[in-house]
Amino acid sequence: MNFAFFGSSLVSAYWNGAATYYRGLIRNLAARGHTITFYEPDAFERQAHRDMPDPDWARDVVYGTATQEPMRAALRDAAGADVIVKTSGVGIFDAELEAAVLELKRPHNTVIFWDVDAPATLDSVHADPHNPFRALIPRYDMVCTYGGGRPVVDAYLALGAQHCEPVYNALDTATHHPVPKDPRFACDLGFLGNRLPDREARVEQFFLAAAAARPGQRFLLGGSGWGDKPMPANVDYLGHVYTRDHNAFNCTPRAVLNISRESMARYGFSPATRVFEAAGAGACLITDHWEGLELFLEPDREVLVARDGDEVAAHLDALTPERAEAIGQAALRTVCAHHTYAHRAEQLEALLEGRAERAVPGLAATA
């Protein structure tokens, strides 16, 4: 099949947490013989902060944003694709794109809205009965999301979606894997995540509070936007960490932390990309609690779970190097066996070919 994706960026993870999701899924679709073109706007300095050159497994088209005409040219280029995907959060002309891709609908193709932040999208639609996206949802052939489980599926179906299918984050074994430790990232606990409005308070609660409670331990914070954030003296801020350093960042600390955004924690069933990237590197992962975690990793054996900063600190107190190694290796085995992007590409292919169940709760990808 010939796929056309309209998304934020394939080649830059700068202020673009979905980049590794797109890369893993698209790389594995290409490995299964499909042809993919990814259309992305030249926006938010992403092209100046690229993590990778243009890949050989997809055609990447960067279009200008001063007017809508470059976007319209990209749509004309995509018109002949078998599967046309508009992702959420492109960042430029989103509303226009959401309507325009539906004009490309033909009897022989499939048009998908792919929501990489379903909790935020649904909250926005529910808050505004006049949101123009509400009327578009039933017109898409299907909605795919990268998380949310039954709560998100039910919410989209209630809004008239023809079908909703979570295609969860996963491990891209080509890019995330164990590597030697790197002294730059030596610490007791590391956290990697951009500063976002519905994450900041939870970072304070789970990460900064734990650091303040354990002044004798070293904490590392990576991600964009935290430069002016007050932090305990034992927290070192790294700024943006390029994806080429993610494996070392995950492998080197005694443990790494996952903190869900508030909306994703509220909906549950929304494992972040870093969950699988850390597990794929063999890291010992501590995560905040969210419903559905056990569908992906087994608490206390493959992941440690905390409900606040005090519990994060308590985990660090009890975590020996031997136990950290055992947890990381157990998680690595599980994600390689069940949660790679090869699994997700196969799931999507089955869905598009009609081989998948059309009334599943959206959890089949965890099997």
Rank of each mutant, 00 (worst) to 15 (best):
P119W: 03
Y237K: 11
V312L: 07
L122C: 14
G223V: 08
V116N: 08
F185K: 02
L238S: 02
A330N: 14
Y242D: 04
K181V: 13
V101K: 04
A313I: 09
D154A: 15
Y22F: 15
L196K: 14
L122P: 14
L257G: 10
A100R: 01
T37F: 04
V111A: 01
K181G: 11
I26N: 08
Y242E: 04
E346V: 03
S224G: 05
R195I: 01
A324K: 11
N131C: 13
V153N: 11
G268C: 08
M52T: 00
P230R: 08
A30F: 03
F219L: 02
V83K: 11
G190P: 02
T340E: 01
D141A: 01
A330K: 11
I327R: 11
C284T: 09
P183L: 10
C336N: 14
R214L: 13
P55C: 03
R134I: 07
Q162C: 03
F269Y: 15
C144T: 15
D172Q: 04
N194S: 15
V125M: 15
S9G: 14
D94A: 06
R274W: 12
A233N: 11
F93V: 01
N258P: 08
A265Y: 01
A186I: 01
S224F: 08
E262W: 07
V153S: 10
L297Q: 06
V235T: 02
R323F: 05
V256W: 00
A233M: 06
V85S: 01
K86P: 00
G64S: 07
N250W: 09
A118Y: 02
L208A: 07
C187R: 01
T173L: 05
V275K: 02
P183C: 13
V143C: 08
H240A: 05
Y14K: 00
G160L: 12
A48G: 13
F296T: 09
T37S: 14
C187K: 00
Q205T: 15
Y156V: 05
M142D: 01
G149Q: 04
H339I: 09
L220Y: 03
Q347C: 01
G222Q: 06
L29Y: 07
V116H: 06
S124L: 12
P183N: 09
L25K: 07
M52N: 00
R323Q: 05
H163W: 12
L363I: 06
A18D: 11
H289Q: 04
L75Q: 07
A326R: 14
A19Y: 03
L208M: 13
L285F: 01
